Amino acid sequence: MNSQPTLLAVAESYLQDVVAPNAAILDQDPDALKTALKGLGSRHLLGLKLPEPWGTVDPQTAWEIQEAIARYSGALGFLQTQHQSAGSAISRSHNQALKAEYLPHLATGKRLLGIGVSHLRRQGNPLVKALPIPGGFLLSGTVPWVTGFGIFHEVVLGAELPDHRAVYGIIPLVNCQKSGGQITWNAPMSLAAMQSTQTVSGILEQWFLPEEKLLFMQPAGWIHESDRKTVLNNTCLLLGCARAGLDIIAAIAQKKPLPGIAAAFNALDRQVIICRQNIQQLLFHQSREELDTWYSQALLLRVQAIDLAYKTAQGAITVSSGASNLGESQAGRVYREALVFGVSGQTSAVMEATLAQLMRSP
């Protein structure tokens, strides 16, 4: 009988013993956050979206591990998912040499990458353009969001071709000049939440992306179709955040034995459990052959997860009373994390469905 702990158990142990006691520091200190990320890597927890032989767990366990990370530190949860998404993109590439270079080192964090593709969802004039030239592409434009500056050294970036197809490749996440091209990353943004994740914008000026660093090209509008298929992917972060809010309510219920607090915990806990079960059923056990039908169900569950992250965070604020206004308040931190997770990877459809949820009469 195998007595080795499962990877989920390894993750839970590290998160409870090392990450949770330092969650407030990880929210503010980039160096501490980088150290925590390396701790995930030393436990082979940074290859959750990679196929065998580089990946280490099945998709449902990977989802549950990311849920646990977000529960104990939203900043770490958000940062690691950037690397996990970059790794997933690399694993889907047909560039065998590039895969051989990166994939063996992603799970352990020996190679760390961010991802910058959200601008491809925007309508109108593309923010980052790719011009085909012999041997590769020239990239120019403004990258509005990349997380992990000073933590990651490279980023998987998307850019739009003149025919509206998209190019995905790897570029440096450091300021640099080469062969007449230049990448300039601005100072980290001042954010309302997760300041430690070092989110920046950048400017590309005639930066040469060689074919050796090309992952793949996708047809026009591909990202929108991909968003439909992956609409439930970040629910692990949302429900991890919801569980963090519930942890605070449960802890305060021990100090303030008021029936209203216990009732609120029980009601919200039940809602989170049911939502989680429904998401896992749809995500891991239901066919997507009828994508429109699957997506309509998935979109509702995504909105439910957003709503629960907000409600449990508000519950944590409420039971924490005036102490929630303190800078070191755990409730305040989780409330800010809900803000981030609620709009991460947001599409127009997710925004509209979220607004519809908010407008429903109680």
Score class of each variant (00 low, 15 high):
residue 211 E to D: 15
residue 86 A to G: 09
residue 34 K to P: 00
residue 95 N to A: 12
residue 199 T to G: 10
residue 323 A to C: 15
residue 295 Y to L: 02
residue 142 T to F: 14
residue 44 H to F: 13
residue 18 V to L: 13
residue 89 A to H: 07
residue 182 Q to H: 14
residue 33 L to I: 01
residue 274 I to V: 15
residue 43 R to P: 05
residue 161 L to M: 07
residue 287 S to T: 15
residue 107 A to L: 08
residue 37 L to T: 00
residue 125 N to P: 11
residue 113 L to N: 03
residue 134 P to W: 11
residue 30 P to M: 06
residue 336 R to K: 12
residue 150 G to T: 02
residue 91 S to K: 12
residue 31 D to W: 06
residue 299 L to H: 02
residue 185 W to I: 04
residue 118 S to G: 12
residue 224 H to Y: 06
residue 361 S to T: 14
residue 339 L to D: 13
residue 194 M to W: 08
residue 133 I to N: 15
residue 13 S to E: 13
residue 134 P to A: 14
residue 180 G to H: 05
residue 11 A to Q: 00
residue 250 A to W: 11
residue 37 L to I: 00
residue 223 I to W: 06
residue 331 A to G: 07
residue 305 A to M: 06
residue 20 A to T: 08
residue 143 V to A: 01
residue 308 L to W: 08
residue 292 D to Y: 02
residue 156 V to Q: 03
residue 309 A to D: 06
residue 45 L to I: 04
residue 146 V to H: 01
residue 206 Q to L: 10
residue 131 L to G: 00
residue 19 V to I: 10
residue 194 M to A: 14
residue 1 M to T: 14
residue 347 T to G: 08
residue 288 R to T: 07
residue 340 V to T: 11
residue 110 K to V: 07
residue 155 V to D: 01
residue 330 Q to T: 11
residue 150 G to Y: 01
residue 301 L to F: 13
residue 181 G to E: 09
residue 219 P to W: 11
residue 295 Y to T: 02
residue 316 A to W: 02
residue 158 G to H: 02
residue 104 P to M: 12
residue 233 N to Y: 09
residue 32 A to P: 00
residue 50 L to K: 08
residue 136 G to F: 13
residue 28 Q to N: 12
residue 283 L to S: 05
residue 160 E to A: 05
residue 105 H to D: 04
residue 25 I to M: 12
residue 37 L to R: 00
residue 286 Q to N: 14
residue 84 Q to L: 08
residue 305 A to N: 05
residue 125 N to L: 13
residue 300 L to S: 10
residue 352 E to A: 13
residue 277 Q to F: 09
residue 172 P to T: 10
residue 132 P to K: 08
residue 240 G to S: 13
residue 38 K to D: 03
residue 234 N to G: 09
residue 168 Y to M: 05
residue 288 R to F: 04
residue 158 G to R: 00
residue 214 L to E: 12
residue 150 G to R: 01
residue 239 L to G: 04
residue 295 Y to G: 01
residue 111 R to H: 10
residue 232 L to R: 01
residue 68 A to E: 03
residue 28 Q to C: 13
residue 160 E to W: 03
residue 161 L to I: 09
residue 244 A to Y: 03
residue 30 P to K: 04
residue 241 C to P: 03
residue 353 A to M: 06
residue 316 A to D: 03
residue 87 G to Q: 03
residue 255 K to L: 15
residue 217 M to T: 04
residue 86 A to Y: 02
residue 240 G to D: 09
residue 110 K to W: 10
residue 58 D to A: 13
residue 332 G to P: 04
residue 361 S to P: 10
residue 221 G to D: 11
residue 255 K to M: 14
residue 74 G to H: 04
residue 16 Q to Y: 15
residue 119 H to Y: 08
residue 339 L to T: 13
residue 123 Q to I: 13
residue 200 V to H: 03
residue 294 W to G: 04
residue 343 V to N: 07
residue 118 S to L: 07
residue 16 Q to V: 15
residue 250 A to G: 11
residue 222 W to G: 03
residue 189 M to N: 10
residue 254 Q to W: 15
residue 7 L to Y: 07
residue 6 T to F: 15
residue 330 Q to A: 14
residue 185 W to C: 01
residue 155 V to M: 05
residue 57 V to H: 02
residue 213 K to D: 07
residue 199 T to P: 04
residue 15 L to C: 03
residue 107 A to E: 02
residue 192 A to S: 14
residue 296 S to G: 04
residue 325 N to F: 14
residue 44 H to Q: 14
residue 12 E to I: 06
residue 17 D to K: 11
residue 218 Q to L: 11
